[in-house]
Design a protein around this nucleic acid. Sequence first.
DNA 1: CGATCGATTGATTTTTGTCAAAGACGGTGG
DNA 2: CCACCGTCTTTGACAAAAATCAATCGATCG
Lengths: 226, 226
Amino acid sequence: MMLEPAEHAAIERAISEIKVVPARTVMVEAGETLRHSALIIDGLMGRTISDRDGLRQFVGLHLPGDFVDLHSYALSQLEHDIASVTHARVAIVPHDRMHALVTDTVLARKLWFSTLLDAAMHRAWLFRLGRLDAMGRVAHFLCETNARLRAVGLSDGRRFALDLTQNDLAEICGVTSIHMNRILRQLREEGLCIVRSSHVEILRPDWLAARGQFDAAYLYLDPDAA
Amino acid sequence: MMLEPAEHAAIERAISEIKVVPARTVMVEAGETLRHSALIIDGLMGRTISDRDGLRQFVGLHLPGDFVDLHSYALSQLEHDIASVTHARVAIVPHDRMHALVTDTVLARKLWFSTLLDAAMHRAWLFRLGRLDAMGRVAHFLCETNARLRAVGLSDGRRFALDLTQNDLAEICGVTSIHMNRILRQLREEGLCIVRSSHVEILRPDWLAARGQFDAAYLYLDPDAA
DNA sequence: CGATCGATTGATTTTTGTCAAAGACGGTGG
DNA sequence: CCACCGTCTTTGACAAAAATCAATCGATCG
C-alpha cells in the first residue's frame, strides 16, 4: 500500500492482538456485526459467498499483507464470509482504534485507495467469469496471482508456492472441480503451466497471459517492480 | 447515500458543468487520466471491460443519483470503460474541487462508503456469474435492479422502466444475446416475469428471487423502504 | 491398516454457444 | 405516404463447453 514508516507504525500500534486461524475455517460469517478488521500476516484467506446448497463462490483471495476486511470498518457488517484457506495468522485492528487512524487524512486516503483496489480486482474477476472460458479463467487467475505474489517478493515471475486444492481453484473460477482437473491437465499437456497442490510453475508466461487475456493494469502495481 | 442537506449542497456547488451524453457512447475510456468524476442525473450508464474481440462485459450498471466514477478520484485512472446505455445527463465534479469536499471527514466517509457499496455489488455480480445458470443470473439481476429502482422511487416493486436491449442484458449476465432471448422467453412462459425493451414486469417476485437466489442484504438499503 | 481427502478418468447429459436466417419495428428520405 | 434501412428480436439446427454420475487411484494420517 506504499505506507510511510510512520503510517506503518501507527497501524501496528492499532493492532490489539494476533489471531491464529486454522486452515479451512470461517473467520467471519456474513451478517455478523464486526468491531474489528484483520490484516493477514501469513497464510491465504478467501472471501466467499455460498449458494443455497452451500456451494461457494470465491469473490476474492487475500495474500499476506492484505487488509482482508477493511470494508467492514465502514460497512460494519459484510454480506460474504471470510474464511482461511491455509493455516493463517492475522493482526486484529479494532474499529475504534481505526477512527484515530483515519483522522490522518493522508492515511485515510490510502486506506480508501486500498479498498478501491479490491473493487478493481473484483471487476477483473467479473470479466474473467463473464467473458472467458474455463481455461481462460484459470490462465487469468494464475497470471493475476503471479503478479500479486511477485509484487510482494513471493514469486520470481514463473514459479511460486500456492496452497490451493483443485476444488479451491474451481470455486474461484466458477467451474466444477472435475472440470478444473481436466483444464489443469490440458494446461500441462499444452506446456503452458504446471499446477500442483501447493506449487505453480508457469512455463510460458506470455502465452498464459494471452490465453487469459490478462493485463495487469488493474492491480495498479509499481511499474518498476522486478 | 443519505446525505445531509448541507452535504448535498456542498456537492452541488462542486459541480462544474452538466454534460449530455448520447445513448451508447463511451464517456470514459480505460487508461485515460481523469480530472473529474461524474454523477448521473438521468439515464443509464454502464462500466464495461472489453475482451480482445471487443465483446463487452458489464461490471456495473449505474442509475440516476449514482456517482458513476467516484473511484477515479482516488485512482486517477480507471481500468474499465464508462459508457452510456441510454441518453444521459451527468454532473461533472472536478477532482480538485473534490479535495475540498473530503476535508469534511464525515462526508469523506460517506463517499468512501458509497465506493464500498459498489464493491459489495461487484461481489454479488461475481456470485451471479460464478454460481448461477443463465436463468438464475437474469432473475438475480432483475431482482437487484428492481430493489435499487424501488429505493429511488422508480419501481413499485413489480413494474419498472428499464431501457436495456437483450444484448445489454446478455453483456451483463455473461451469456450470448441469442441465449438471453431464449431465457427471457422461458421466464415469460413460466409466468415469472415479462421483460420487454424498456419495461419489466415481475409477476412473481418471490419466485424470481428464489430462482436467482437473491438476497438484498448487499445493497445495504434502508430496511424501512416502501 | 483402514479411513479420508484430493486427484484422476470415462461415459453421458445438460447447458450454452455458433451459424444462419427471418421477422418486427421505428425512423428517414424520397 | 411509402419504400428502405438499420437495429433489435426471434427461431431452428447444430456444435462445443461444461456439468453430472460413477468409479478408481494415491497419498497421508491416526
